[in-house]
């Protein structure tokens, strides 16, 4: 009787082992495999593009990504009407720039605007991130220097091109958040050194507070607006006395961003834009502008 019971237990055990070995079960008990590493955590990015319009975002690129930018600001305002094709007949202020992601956190960019032949070199660095489903936060800093290599102002004709008064510097702290993956909000306190290069005696500095928002309507397009009011320091009372305001749409693809917008500013490089805008928004007069950026990666087919 006991030996029969023993056989039943033995066969039962064997049967159990064999049945549990069948692949239909969650995992074969003879298998010791366990996931060897945790799930990859991609870098936190909030705004899709590294730029709003004239303000930067805290978004960075992937290491060794190269970003080519071309921007236009049509100088005649939209009020010229159909005769000037709403400003599109030009002339234009334009900027071209090339950025390189030194790593996943920092981008160095060299740009040039035809206005004063302003050449700027900037470095943006992502300092801090808070991963939070409700209110993620990215904080970055951006600093740069600009050389007005051929200023057009009549007052300073004759000044040596490399005169120190032709150089400017700026610094920005970029705070970004994103609500429900739809609404990006940015606050960008900005400081500009040597706001107006026309002064011969001493430098003037300006503080502004950049504010920008972007609503991602669909996977590939969004609405964006930015406003950069004056806070303190020097403010031009003539040609750049207004607070820059721009708004438009952004389209994005696998490697491009296209922005088309209206702005009260004709300036593109940061050291010029932060000095102030030239058109009063009260007159409802705007300039058309666009920015195209293309991401490239050398050595890889994209």
């Amino acid at each position: 009787m006991k030996s029969r019971l023993f056989m039943v237990i033995l066969l039962g055990g064997f049967f159990l082992i064999s049945v549990l070995s069948f692949p239909g079960f969650t995992q074969n008990p003879n298998i010791s495999w366990k996931r060897s590493s945790p799930e990859t955590q991609p870098d936190l990015q909030l705004f899709h593009s590294p730029h709003s319009i004239d303000l930067p975002t805290a978004t960075t690129l992937q290491k060794w990504d190269v970003e080519f930018e071309i921007s236009h600001r049509f100088i005649p305002p939209t009020s010229v009407g159909i005769n000037g094709f709403y400003g599109l007949d030009g002339p234009v202020n334009m900027r071209i720039a090339l950025g390189l992601a030194l790593n996943n956190r920092s981008i160095i960019t060299l740009g040039r605007s035809n206005f004063n032949d302003n050449i700027d070199l900037t470095l943006k660095y992502k300092i801090f991130e808070i991963r939070n489903n409700a209110l993620p936060v990215l904080i970055a800093a951006r600093a740069g220097g600009a050389w007005n290599s051929n200023p057009a102002y009549i007052q300073i004709i004759g000044r040596d091109k490399t005169n120190s008064r032709n150089f400017q510097a700026f610094g920005q702290v970029i705070l970004n958040t994103m609500i429900r993956n739809k609404l990006g909000i940015g606050i960008v306190p900005s400081y500009l050194y040597n706001t107006d290069i026309r002064f011969e005696d001493k430098t003037k500095d300006t503080f502004r507070l950049g504010l920008n928002a972007q609503y991602y309507v669909g996977q590939f397009w969004s609405l964006l607006i930015e406003y950069t009011p004056y806070i303190s320091g020097y403010r031009s009372l003539t040609d750049q006395k207004h607070n820059p305001l721009s708004f438009g749409i952004e389209l994005e693809t696998g490697g491009h961003f296209f922005k088309i917008f209206l702005s009260n500013s004709k300036f593109l490089n940061s050291s010029q834009f932060l000095a102030g805008a030239d058109l009063p928004v009260e007159n409802n007069d705007w300039r058309l502008g666009f920015m195209i950026t293309r991401l490239l990666k050398f050595g890889k087919k994209i």
């Binding site: 995992q27 799930e39 991609p42 899709h48 992937q62």
Partner: peptide
């Protein structure tokens, strides 16, 4: 059983990965 961690896929451009 084989699995691939999809967050690790690199297409060469960060934006396209995203």
């Amino acid at each position: 059983y084989f699995e691939v961690d999809l967050n690790s896929i690199d297409t060469g451009i960060g934006l396209r990965n995203r």
